[in-house]
């Protein structure tokens, strides 16, 4: 799982290197259908998202119909076929966070960034998503930026928090 987190930051790698890394993943998981979800996780970690070309490549390598792969990708909310910003803000909208005003924090973030939920800022700096409970309910409302959990976030803190990420 560590690897997944470390790889989200778009290293300046060549296409060949990225595909080389993908091949290693495919080898490791023996191109087995039952490993598809784990393979997609790793692929997303390598490429930052799941580009269509890459999914086609996986389909060929695994000898699965592309429609089947798309079916799986679209089913799970953590898979994304769109490129993400340099930083991903995940606002928890689980029960505990909602009760503690997470919706206000979310609106503030979106207002400040001038985007809608699920979008990426024009300068490619931030993407904003909502999550259903990140397991930090005792710290509600919680948001996670690039995997770091920030606790007891209030509307007034948003500006400062955003400034910390370039």
């Amino acid at each position: 799982m560590k690897e997944v987190r470390e790889c989200c930051c778009h290293h300046p790698e060549t296409k060949e290197e990225l595909y080389e890394a993908l091949n290693q993943v495919l080898d490791k998981y023996e191109r087995k259908e039952s490993n598809l979800i784990q393979i997609l996780h790793m692929t997303q970690a390598i490429f930052g998202y799941l580009p269509e070309d890459v999914l086609k490549y996986i389909a060929e390598e695994m000898d699965l119909p592309l429609s089947k792969i798309f079916g799986v990708v679209t089913f799970y909310s953590l898979f994304s076929t769109q490129p993400k910003g340099r930083h991903t803000i995940q606002v928890c909208m689980g029960t505990a966070c909602y009760v503690k005003g997470a919706d206000k924090v979310l609106n503030e973030i979106l207002d400040k960034l001038g985007i809608k939920l699920g979008e990426t800022t024009k300068d490619g700096r931030f993407s904003v998503q909502v999550m259903r409970c990140i397991g930090a309910c005792g710290l509600a409302p919680a948001i996670s930026i690039d995997g770091d959990i920030l606790k007891h976030v209030t509307v007034n803190m948003v500006d400062d928090i955003l400034k910390r990420y370039e």
Partner: peptide
Amino acid sequence: IRIGAGAF
């Protein structure tokens, strides 16, 4: 270990 992908 298998890791889910965000589906309740």
